[in-house]
Computed example of a mutant assay.
Amino acid sequence: MKVEKISELTTNRMSVYLRCLNELAAEGTKTVSSETIAKRFHLNSAQIRKDLAYFGEFGVRGVGYYVEELCEHLTKILGLNKEHRVAIIGAGRLGTALTDYYGFTQSNFVVSALFDTDKNKIGQRVRDVIIYDIKDFDQVAKKDKIDVAVITVPAPFAQSILEQVTKAGIKAVMNFAPTPLRVEGTVKLKTVDLTISLESLSYFLAQPSNFNGKK
């Protein structure tokens, strides 16, 4: 298994494949070919086969892929066969909305704690999730076995929050603050910047002749 050569783009596509396969499984589909997956979900069949080949030989000649079996393999490959406990830092509109995000529980992510600095919010609950003082992050993270942190604070505070959560031992962080952050060591940081995506769409509207149809 050539795991050390796997790119983030590949793992992103694996998540897409798993979502597609789960949909097929829910419909009662037992076996499926890469061509059928590609046609049904607007993907590339050669890319599907190449990506899956990094992790083993899953297809059967003349049959294709056994849907439920491949779902199980991809779930394990993506580490979704175990529960991940999530802490959201910033109990504002975005943070509280993410607490109720269906996609988390669907992929075995459980929001276990919210954190904020507002004394009027600390101690309250959002969907049964307690809002803690950010000063108590280290203690709560250890108690609740948090392994993923989501940052939804204003940009000027994001770097210091990142340093605080990584100091507490968190190795996986998703950042929604619209600012680049610096990480050290083995911490994995993913930034979701909605403004950049919208500005890219704005460029398309302003310069439609330069649009080539690619993402």
Results as ranks from 00 to 15, higher is better:
9 L>I: 11
40 R>K: 05
149 A>P: 03
52 L>C: 02
62 G>P: 01
120 N>M: 10
19 R>D: 12
100 D>K: 15
4 E>N: 13
70 L>W: 02
156 P>T: 05
19 R>C: 14
137 F>T: 02
196 I>N: 15
14 M>G: 08
33 S>F: 05
60 V>G: 01
17 Y>A: 01
175 N>S: 10
158 A>T: 08
72 E>M: 09
124 Q>T: 13
116 D>W: 00
146 I>W: 02
14 M>K: 14
72 E>C: 12
87 A>Q: 07
70 L>N: 01
15 S>G: 15
52 L>E: 09
63 V>E: 15
51 D>Q: 00
71 C>D: 01
54 Y>W: 13
120 N>L: 09
49 R>N: 15
121 K>D: 00
153 V>Y: 01
215 K>C: 07
64 G>F: 12
69 E>V: 05
6 I>G: 02
144 D>Q: 11
101 Y>I: 08
121 K>A: 00
70 L>S: 05
188 K>G: 11
88 I>M: 00
83 E>D: 03
145 K>M: 00
107 S>L: 15
187 V>A: 03
166 T>E: 00
213 G>Y: 04
156 P>R: 07
136 D>Q: 13
118 D>V: 09
91 A>Y: 00
56 G>M: 10
129 V>R: 00
20 C>H: 11
23 E>C: 10
171 K>F: 02
179 T>K: 10
198 L>F: 14
100 D>F: 09
171 K>Y: 07
144 D>E: 11
159 Q>Y: 05
157 F>R: 10
22 N>C: 03
120 N>D: 08
70 L>V: 09
100 D>A: 15
201 L>V: 08
97 A>Q: 15
193 D>R: 15
19 R>A: 14
145 K>P: 04
90 G>N: 01
148 V>D: 08
28 G>Y: 04
180 P>Q: 11
133 D>E: 00
209 S>D: 13
200 S>Q: 15
118 D>N: 08
207 Q>W: 14
192 V>M: 13
104 F>T: 05
143 K>F: 13
46 A>I: 06
150 V>D: 04
188 K>R: 15
151 I>F: 05
50 K>T: 10
181 L>R: 07
146 I>R: 03
149 A>L: 11
89 I>V: 13
8 E>F: 06
58 F>A: 11
54 Y>A: 14
66 Y>W: 09
125 R>I: 08
150 V>H: 05
28 G>D: 14
155 A>P: 15
187 V>I: 07
156 P>F: 08
135 K>I: 01
43 L>H: 02
100 D>P: 06
53 A>M: 07
85 R>D: 05
1 M>C: 05
184 E>P: 05
61 R>E: 12
29 T>A: 09
57 E>F: 10
83 E>Q: 10
206 A>M: 14
136 D>T: 12
134 I>K: 14
181 L>M: 01
45 S>Q: 06
111 V>T: 14
58 F>R: 03
125 R>G: 03
197 S>I: 07
207 Q>M: 15
21 L>T: 03
199 E>Y: 13
67 V>W: 05
112 S>P: 09
128 D>H: 08
18 L>E: 01
54 Y>C: 13
80 L>P: 07
37 I>W: 07
44 N>Y: 06
174 M>Y: 11
39 K>A: 10
131 I>C: 02
